[in-house]
């Protein structure tokens, strides 16, 4: 009986030891090398170089930007009295028409399926603009758009740096230039709440 207990304890200890050794292997999901493996797993080869999940994500996001910012800009042209807001809206319309043409070309060449309607969040932003009173309109409009452009801006930089696909590389350069222009024009309206942007509350 005594001996049996000893064996049981020893076996238990062995099982625990092996389990404990195995645990970190399972839990080190982000150990070095995993990020590269994850990148590779979502990657397909194209004649313009490898196309990763991040590349496709940028393509989709550029398309989505046009889908909600064009109606937003058109609405501002009609609703706002501010010359600076109208000027920003002018840049949004011209810039996103241009980018949309580019992104449709890139997506068609790479075989990436594009959405044709804004996503739920973007529709909610359009709703917020719709329901803003005339007094609030310029502020709501400029801040929602500035916030969205500011969020995508560093993401474009990441893809511009890391992509191995020549079509995506050019798209990222073009998008970087357009988005910086839009950020600058939106800030010129004088309506942007920089504290809220810095705190991430819009």
């Amino acid at each position: 009986m005594q001996r049996l207990n000893g064996s049981a304890i020893a076996s238990l200890a062995l099982v625990v030891t092996v389990g404990a050794l195995a645990f970190p292997v399972w839990s080190y999901a982000d150990r070095s090398g995993t990020a590269q493996a994850n990148m590779a797993s979502g990657m397909v080869n194209t004649q313009w170089g490898p196309l990763t999940a991040s590349d496709r994500d940028l393509i989709i996001r550029v398309r989505l930007a046009g889908l909600w910012e064009l109606p937003a800009a058109e609405q501002a042209m009609q609703r706002s009295d501010s010359p600076a807001v109208k000027e920003a809206a002018d840049h949004l319309i011209v810039g996103h028409k241009d980018l949309d043409e580019r992104v449709r070309n890139v997506a068609a060449q790479l075989g990436v399926e594009l959405p044709n309607v804004p996503n739920a969040q973007q529709q909610a932003w359009l709703q917020q603009m719709n329901s803003a009173t005339d007094d609030q309109y310029d502020r709501v409009w400029a801040n929602l758009l500035r916030s969205a452009h500011g969020k995508i801006f560093p993401a474009i930089g990441q893809v511009r740096n890391g992509t191995q696909n020549t079509l995506v590389r050019q798209l990222a350069s073009d998008t970087n230039q357009t988005v910086l222009d839009h950020i600058t024009m939106l800030e010129k309206t004088g309506e942007v709440d920089f504290d809220a942007i810095a705190n991430g509350t819009i």
């Binding site: 995993t34 990020a35 994850n38 999940a53 064009l70 075989g111 890391g162």
Partner: peptide, 29 residues
Amino acid sequence: SVSGTASPTGPPPPVPGQVPPAAPAAEPS
């Protein structure tokens, strides 16, 4: 350039030989 748990998620990869539906231009109405 990738770090942490760069996730393999994201939009699906294109399927060879399969042409995605054409996307109409996003234009002012």
